[in-house]
Amino acid sequence: MTTDTKAGAPFAASPPLPESGTGTPVPAPPGGARDAAIVTRGLTKRFRGGQVAVDSLDLVVPRGSVFGFLGPNGSGKTTTIRMLLGLVTPTSGTRELLGVPLAEALPSVGALVEGPAFYPYLSGRDNLLRYDAADRTADPRTARERVAAALDRVGLAAAAGKRYRAYSLGMRQRLAIAAALLGPRELLILDEPTNGLDPQGTREVRALIKEIAAEGVTVFVSSHLLAEVEQMCTHAAIMRAGRLVAQGSLAGLRAGEVPRVRVETPDVARAARVLRELGLMDVHAGEGEVTASLEDVAAEHANAELVRAGVAVRGLAVVRPSLEDVFVELTGEGFDVDG
């Protein structure tokens, strides 16, 4: 299996990426820290009161990837991100960002953690200037320029002088992303960046993330939306109840899932029998259609056999497995079950 090709040429020099379709978390490769943007080993957080929010997490985020950190609400995504950024002390385990100690890595990391947070009575511009002033590595002479550029980039140039209090939810979210883009970054850690956005805002944020990633910045983005990760990301890790279920390139994750074939026909019973005889598994006969797991049978071969058996085929399609299928396969439950 080759590495995911979506990332294209800029990442051709990247090391072999961890891939997994087996359902077991991939152990961190030895010496992976240098080439990985994020590496965690056995990262665990048990909150006071005994709740284990994150359980022995072994995560490897390759440099240059757009890494989707996927999990239902309450699965431990935000807690993991807080540990990565040094806000929460792990109960056990280690984590490394950009291959250097945390304090050295953080100036090159832009972050959005659990929603935007700003001073309500300051303007968007003054809020960004305030965060910039707190950054000892930021050049004060270019502060206004950088703030203006960041605001412009997220489409807030016109609202720069408005008080944060008067911002809409979408504007607040974009201001938080602007704050994450204030300095030169090698890694962006975005916790549910499209939360609370309308469809238009969601599209804009996704486009922005792709644009940033195209510049070579590693983007680690958490989400509880399967479709979102499938659209934006080159890699993903799937969390469930604090544990890592799987991680790897999207192609690698899906590889464990056998594609299904969907046959539209008025001849449901006969079609189902033919497919079973061909060796297809998990055959479901529905209303005017039959679906089945292709196993290693080629779709065109199945089609030929159906026609030969006199089944009237109106349509035939191969259904690529979605991340949701992967999740259901690995956990035996639907994605949105636990809260």
Partner: peptide, 15 residues
Amino acid sequence: STAEARVAPPGAGAV
């Protein structure tokens, strides 16, 4: 724009 993120060559240590 200066807000643009810096491109990190793969494998190069963080500046």
